[in-house]
Protein backbone atom coordinates (compact mmCIF):
# COMPACT_ATOMS: atom_id res chain seq x y z
CA UNK A 1 0.00 0.00 0.00
CA UNK A 2 1.29 3.39 -0.95
CA UNK A 3 -0.19 6.56 0.49
CA UNK A 4 0.55 10.07 -0.66
CA UNK A 5 3.96 9.12 -1.99
CA UNK A 6 5.96 12.00 -3.41
CA UNK A 7 9.52 11.95 -4.69
CA UNK A 8 11.35 14.99 -5.93
CA UNK A 9 14.81 15.15 -7.44
CA UNK A 10 15.72 18.77 -6.99
CA UNK A 11 12.84 20.77 -8.39
CA UNK A 12 11.61 17.89 -10.55
CA UNK A 13 8.70 15.97 -9.09
CA UNK A 14 8.92 12.40 -10.31
CA UNK A 15 6.13 10.90 -8.23
CA UNK A 16 3.37 13.21 -7.09
CA UNK A 17 1.11 12.32 -4.18
CA UNK A 18 0.56 8.78 -5.40
CA UNK A 19 -1.67 6.35 -3.53
CA UNK A 20 -2.13 2.71 -4.51
CA UNK A 21 -3.33 -0.44 -2.85
CA UNK A 22 -2.26 -3.89 -3.97
CA UNK A 23 -4.38 -6.66 -2.50
CA UNK A 24 -2.96 -9.96 -1.41
CA UNK A 25 -3.02 -12.67 -4.02
CA UNK A 26 -3.70 -10.50 -7.03
CA UNK A 27 -1.66 -9.66 -10.10
CA UNK A 28 -1.50 -5.91 -10.08
CA UNK A 29 -0.51 -4.01 -13.19
CA UNK A 30 1.33 -0.75 -12.84
CA UNK A 31 1.01 0.99 -16.11
CA UNK A 32 2.42 4.18 -17.49
CA UNK A 33 4.46 5.59 -20.33
CA UNK A 34 8.24 5.72 -20.07
CA UNK A 35 9.28 8.25 -17.47
CA UNK A 36 5.93 8.25 -15.69
CA UNK A 37 7.55 7.40 -12.36
CA UNK A 38 6.88 3.66 -12.23
CA UNK A 39 10.40 2.58 -11.38
CA UNK A 40 10.85 5.36 -8.84
CA UNK A 41 7.64 4.26 -7.11
CA UNK A 42 8.81 0.65 -7.02
CA UNK A 43 12.21 1.72 -5.68
CA UNK A 44 10.47 3.60 -2.90
CA UNK A 45 8.39 0.51 -2.22
CA UNK A 46 11.59 -1.48 -1.68
CA UNK A 47 13.28 1.19 0.40
CA UNK A 48 15.94 1.87 -2.24
CA UNK A 49 14.95 5.52 -2.45
CA UNK A 50 13.62 7.63 0.35
CA UNK A 51 10.33 9.35 -0.47
CA UNK A 52 10.25 13.12 -0.14
CA UNK A 53 6.92 12.66 1.61
CA UNK A 54 4.27 10.02 2.03
CA UNK A 55 4.56 6.41 3.09
CA UNK A 56 4.70 3.00 1.56
CA UNK A 57 3.58 -0.02 3.54
CA UNK A 58 4.59 -3.45 2.33
CA UNK A 59 2.86 -6.40 3.98
CA UNK A 60 2.00 -4.14 6.87
CA UNK A 61 5.51 -2.79 7.44
CA UNK A 62 7.25 0.37 6.31
CA UNK A 63 9.01 0.05 2.97
CA UNK A 64 12.53 -1.21 3.19
CA UNK A 65 11.99 -2.80 6.58
CA UNK A 66 9.78 -5.49 5.15
CA UNK A 67 11.99 -7.11 2.61
CA UNK A 68 11.24 -10.47 4.14
CA UNK A 69 8.26 -11.21 1.99
CA UNK A 70 9.30 -9.23 -1.05
CA UNK A 71 11.32 -10.27 -4.06
CA UNK A 72 12.03 -7.78 -6.77
CA UNK A 73 13.50 -7.19 -10.18
CA UNK A 74 13.91 -3.46 -10.55
CA UNK A 75 14.90 -1.77 -13.78
CA UNK A 76 16.63 -4.62 -15.48
CA UNK A 77 18.76 -7.37 -14.03
CA UNK A 78 22.03 -6.52 -12.25
CA UNK A 79 24.46 -9.39 -11.77
CA UNK A 80 28.18 -10.10 -11.52
CA UNK A 81 29.37 -10.67 -15.09
CA UNK A 82 32.29 -12.93 -14.13
CA UNK A 83 30.13 -15.35 -12.12
CA UNK A 84 27.90 -18.03 -13.59
CA UNK A 85 24.14 -17.75 -13.30
CA UNK A 86 24.14 -20.27 -10.48
CA UNK A 87 26.99 -18.59 -8.61
CA UNK A 88 25.21 -15.26 -8.88
CA UNK A 89 22.11 -16.77 -7.33
CA UNK A 90 24.18 -18.46 -4.62
CA UNK A 91 25.70 -15.13 -3.64
CA UNK A 92 22.23 -13.62 -3.47
CA UNK A 93 20.79 -16.59 -1.59
CA UNK A 94 23.39 -16.02 1.12
CA UNK A 95 22.33 -12.41 1.37
CA UNK A 96 18.69 -13.45 1.44
CA UNK A 97 19.14 -16.19 3.99
CA UNK A 98 17.46 -18.53 1.54
CA UNK A 99 18.24 -22.23 1.69
CA UNK A 100 20.83 -23.29 -0.89
CA UNK A 101 18.31 -25.65 -2.47
CA UNK A 102 16.23 -22.69 -3.60
CA UNK A 103 18.86 -21.79 -6.20
CA UNK A 104 18.17 -24.87 -8.29
CA UNK A 105 14.44 -24.56 -7.74
CA UNK A 106 14.27 -21.02 -9.10
CA UNK A 107 16.63 -21.89 -11.96
CA UNK A 108 14.13 -24.58 -12.95
CA UNK A 109 11.25 -22.16 -12.55
CA UNK A 110 12.71 -19.77 -15.11
CA UNK A 111 14.06 -22.57 -17.25
CA UNK A 112 17.74 -21.68 -16.96
CA UNK A 113 19.11 -24.92 -15.55
CA UNK A 114 20.88 -25.77 -18.80
CA UNK A 115 22.88 -22.56 -18.85
CA UNK A 116 23.35 -22.16 -15.11
CA UNK A 117 27.06 -22.98 -15.35
CA UNK A 118 27.81 -20.35 -17.95
CA UNK A 119 29.10 -16.93 -17.09
CA UNK A 120 26.44 -14.28 -16.80
CA UNK A 121 28.27 -12.10 -19.31
CA UNK A 122 27.57 -14.70 -22.01
CA UNK A 123 23.81 -14.64 -21.46
CA UNK A 124 21.35 -13.23 -23.95
CA UNK A 125 19.13 -10.37 -22.84
CA UNK A 126 16.21 -12.75 -22.36
CA UNK A 127 18.29 -15.06 -20.17
CA UNK A 128 19.51 -12.14 -18.10
CA UNK A 129 15.94 -11.04 -17.60
CA UNK A 130 14.93 -14.54 -16.55
CA UNK A 131 17.82 -14.75 -14.11
CA UNK A 132 16.54 -11.47 -12.70
CA UNK A 133 13.14 -13.02 -12.13
CA UNK A 134 14.81 -16.06 -10.58
CA UNK A 135 16.63 -13.82 -8.09
CA UNK A 136 13.31 -12.19 -7.19
CA UNK A 137 11.90 -15.61 -6.36
CA UNK A 138 14.83 -16.80 -4.20
CA UNK A 139 13.07 -16.14 -0.92
CA UNK A 140 9.81 -17.55 -2.19
CA UNK A 141 8.37 -14.15 -1.36
CA UNK A 142 4.76 -13.36 -0.76
CA UNK A 143 5.01 -10.27 -2.97
CA UNK A 144 6.93 -10.38 -6.23
CA UNK A 145 7.71 -6.98 -7.74
CA UNK A 146 8.72 -7.09 -11.40
CA UNK A 147 9.65 -3.91 -13.20
CA UNK A 148 9.05 -4.35 -16.91
CA UNK A 149 10.12 -8.00 -16.93
CA UNK A 150 9.46 -8.46 -20.64
CA UNK A 151 11.77 -5.62 -21.71
CA UNK A 152 13.91 -6.81 -24.56
CA UNK A 153 12.38 -10.27 -24.79
CA UNK A 154 11.41 -11.86 -28.08
CA UNK A 155 7.81 -12.97 -28.65
CA UNK A 156 8.48 -16.45 -27.31
CA UNK A 157 10.18 -14.96 -24.27
CA UNK A 158 7.25 -12.64 -23.64
CA UNK A 159 4.84 -15.54 -23.89
CA UNK A 160 6.96 -17.57 -21.45
CA UNK A 161 7.08 -14.65 -19.05
CA UNK A 162 3.30 -14.36 -19.13
CA UNK A 163 2.95 -18.04 -18.40
CA UNK A 164 5.38 -17.64 -15.51
CA UNK A 165 3.39 -14.73 -14.10
CA UNK A 166 0.20 -16.76 -14.24
CA UNK A 167 1.96 -19.65 -12.51
CA UNK A 168 3.23 -17.37 -9.77
CA UNK A 169 -0.26 -16.06 -9.23
CA UNK A 170 -1.70 -19.57 -9.18
CA UNK A 171 0.88 -20.53 -6.54
CA UNK A 172 -0.48 -17.83 -4.28
CA UNK A 173 2.08 -15.09 -4.87
CA UNK A 174 0.99 -11.49 -5.07
CA UNK A 175 2.54 -9.98 -8.19
CA UNK A 176 3.13 -6.29 -8.80
CA UNK A 177 4.02 -5.86 -12.44
CA UNK A 178 5.01 -2.60 -14.02
CA UNK A 179 4.85 -2.23 -17.72
CA UNK A 180 4.37 0.09 -20.59
CA UNK A 181 3.07 -2.79 -22.68
CA UNK A 182 -0.68 -2.83 -22.46
CA UNK A 183 -1.27 -6.26 -23.92
CA UNK A 184 0.82 -7.76 -21.15
CA UNK A 185 -1.15 -6.08 -18.40
CA UNK A 186 -4.48 -6.70 -20.04
CA UNK A 187 -3.81 -10.40 -20.27
CA UNK A 188 -2.37 -11.21 -16.88
CA UNK A 189 -3.49 -8.58 -14.39
CA UNK A 190 -6.49 -8.50 -12.11
CA UNK A 191 -6.29 -4.81 -11.36
CA UNK A 192 -4.28 -1.96 -12.79
CA UNK A 193 -3.14 1.47 -11.86
CA UNK A 194 -2.37 3.88 -14.65
CA UNK A 195 0.06 6.67 -13.86
CA UNK A 196 1.24 9.53 -15.96
CA UNK A 197 3.81 12.19 -15.01
CA UNK A 198 3.95 10.75 -11.51
CA UNK A 199 0.22 11.09 -10.87
CA UNK A 200 -2.34 8.37 -10.56
CA UNK A 201 -4.76 8.51 -13.47
CA UNK A 202 -6.95 5.60 -12.51
CA UNK A 203 -6.85 2.52 -10.32
CA UNK A 204 -9.41 -0.17 -10.98
CA UNK A 205 -9.91 -3.71 -12.13
CA UNK A 206 -9.06 -4.47 -15.72
CA UNK A 207 -12.66 -5.51 -16.26
CA UNK A 208 -14.00 -2.23 -14.91
CA UNK A 209 -11.55 -0.21 -16.90
CA UNK A 210 -12.50 -1.96 -20.10
CA UNK A 211 -16.12 -1.84 -19.03
CA UNK A 212 -16.07 1.91 -19.43
CA UNK A 213 -17.78 1.38 -22.72
CA UNK A 214 -18.05 4.11 -25.20
CA UNK A 215 -21.47 4.99 -26.53
CA UNK A 216 -21.25 6.53 -29.97
CA UNK A 217 -24.26 8.68 -30.75
CA UNK A 218 -24.90 9.97 -34.25
CA UNK A 219 -27.64 12.56 -34.06
CA UNK A 220 -28.84 15.84 -35.53
CA UNK A 221 -28.46 18.56 -34.32
CA UNK A 222 -25.19 17.41 -32.82
CA UNK A 223 -24.79 20.32 -30.38
CA UNK A 224 -28.11 19.68 -28.76
CA UNK A 225 -27.45 15.94 -28.55
CA UNK A 226 -24.14 16.69 -26.84
CA UNK A 227 -25.81 19.12 -24.43
CA UNK A 228 -28.50 16.62 -23.44
CA UNK A 229 -26.00 13.80 -22.99
CA UNK A 230 -23.78 16.06 -20.93
CA UNK A 231 -26.71 16.93 -18.69
CA UNK A 232 -27.32 13.24 -18.07
CA UNK A 233 -23.74 12.04 -17.61
CA UNK A 234 -21.67 15.06 -16.68
CA UNK A 235 -19.15 16.91 -18.84
CA UNK A 236 -16.17 14.65 -18.12
CA UNK A 237 -17.87 11.66 -19.72
CA UNK A 238 -18.94 13.32 -22.96
CA UNK A 239 -17.01 14.54 -25.97
CA UNK A 240 -17.76 15.32 -29.59
CA UNK A 241 -15.51 13.44 -31.96
CA UNK A 242 -15.79 13.63 -35.72
CA UNK A 243 -19.51 14.34 -36.09
CA UNK A 244 -20.61 12.04 -33.31
CA UNK A 245 -21.04 12.29 -29.59
CA UNK A 246 -18.78 9.93 -27.62
CA UNK A 247 -20.06 9.15 -24.15
CA UNK A 248 -18.44 7.00 -21.49
CA UNK A 249 -21.54 4.96 -20.81
CA UNK A 250 -22.56 1.35 -20.59
CA UNK A 251 -25.59 -0.32 -22.18
CA UNK A 252 -27.69 0.56 -19.13
CA UNK A 253 -27.38 4.23 -20.03
CA UNK A 254 -28.14 3.83 -23.72
CA UNK A 255 -31.92 3.60 -23.49
CA UNK A 256 -32.11 6.51 -21.06
CA UNK A 257 -29.99 8.72 -23.30
CA UNK A 258 -31.93 7.67 -26.38
CA UNK A 259 -35.25 8.52 -24.74
CA UNK A 260 -34.02 11.92 -23.62
CA UNK A 261 -32.75 12.70 -27.11
CA UNK A 262 -35.97 11.63 -28.82
CA UNK A 263 -38.12 13.57 -26.34
CA UNK A 264 -36.05 16.66 -27.14
CA UNK A 265 -36.75 16.20 -30.85
CA UNK A 266 -33.21 15.23 -31.68
CA UNK A 267 -33.00 12.87 -34.63
CA UNK A 268 -30.95 9.88 -33.59
CA UNK A 269 -29.55 8.11 -36.62
CA UNK A 270 -27.10 5.85 -34.87
CA UNK A 271 -26.48 4.60 -31.34
CA UNK A 272 -23.86 1.96 -30.81
CA UNK A 273 -21.74 0.60 -28.08
CA UNK A 274 -17.97 0.33 -28.55
CA UNK A 275 -15.81 -1.65 -26.20
CA UNK A 276 -12.29 -0.37 -25.72
CA UNK A 277 -8.89 -1.89 -25.41
CA UNK A 278 -6.82 -0.96 -22.48
CA UNK A 279 -4.60 0.81 -24.93
CA UNK A 280 -7.41 3.11 -26.02
CA UNK A 281 -8.34 3.75 -22.40
CA UNK A 282 -4.76 4.40 -21.62
CA UNK A 283 -4.22 6.82 -24.45
CA UNK A 284 -7.38 8.64 -23.56
CA UNK A 285 -6.36 8.95 -19.96
CA UNK A 286 -2.72 9.80 -20.26
CA UNK A 287 -2.92 11.63 -23.54
CA UNK A 288 0.50 10.23 -24.22
CA UNK A 289 2.13 8.89 -27.28
CA UNK A 290 2.55 5.35 -26.18
CA UNK A 291 4.84 3.27 -28.26
CA UNK A 292 2.87 0.25 -29.33
CA UNK A 293 5.83 -1.95 -28.65
CA UNK A 294 5.51 -5.64 -28.58
CA UNK A 295 5.49 -8.48 -31.02
CA UNK A 296 2.13 -7.80 -32.59
CA UNK A 297 1.99 -4.55 -34.51
CA UNK A 298 -1.32 -3.02 -33.67
CA UNK A 299 -3.44 -0.70 -35.66
CA UNK A 300 -4.93 2.44 -34.18
CA UNK A 301 -6.72 1.66 -30.94
CA UNK A 302 -10.17 2.39 -32.30
CA UNK A 303 -9.84 -0.44 -34.76
CA UNK A 304 -9.03 -3.01 -32.16
CA UNK A 305 -12.47 -3.49 -30.73
CA UNK A 306 -12.79 -6.86 -32.41
CA UNK A 307 -9.74 -8.14 -30.60
CA UNK A 308 -11.11 -7.04 -27.31
CA UNK A 309 -14.41 -8.83 -27.65
CA UNK A 310 -12.49 -12.01 -28.35
CA UNK A 311 -10.49 -11.45 -25.25
CA UNK A 312 -13.61 -10.58 -23.34
CA UNK A 313 -15.00 -13.97 -24.18
CA UNK A 314 -11.92 -15.65 -22.71
CA UNK A 315 -12.41 -13.88 -19.47
Amino acid sequence: MIAGLTKRYGSRTVVDDLSLTVRRGEVYGFLGPNGAGKTTTLRALLGLVRPTSGTALVLGRPAGAASSGVGALIEGPGFYPYLSGRENLRVLARYAGAPAGRVDTVLRTVDLTDRARDRYSTYSLGMKQRLGVASALLKDPELVVLDEPTNGLDPAGISDMRALLRRLSADGHTVLLSSHLLGEVEQVCDRVAVISSGRLVVESSVGELLGLHRLVIEAEPLDEAAAITTRLLGPERVSVVGGAVHAQAGPEDAARINRALVLADVEVSGLRQEAQTLEAVFLEMTGSELVAAGPDPDGPPAQRTGRLSRRGAER
Partner: peptide, 8 residues
Amino acid sequence: LKTLLGQG
Protein backbone atom coordinates in the same frame (compact mmCIF):
# COMPACT_ATOMS: atom_id res chain seq x y z
CA LEU B 1 23.80 -3.15 -5.26
CA LYS B 2 20.06 -2.86 -5.85
CA THR B 3 19.94 -6.62 -6.51
CA LEU B 4 21.76 -7.30 -3.23
CA LEU B 5 19.62 -4.91 -1.23
CA GLY B 6 16.52 -6.38 -2.84
CA GLN B 7 17.31 -9.62 -1.01
CA GLY B 8 16.62 -7.98 2.31
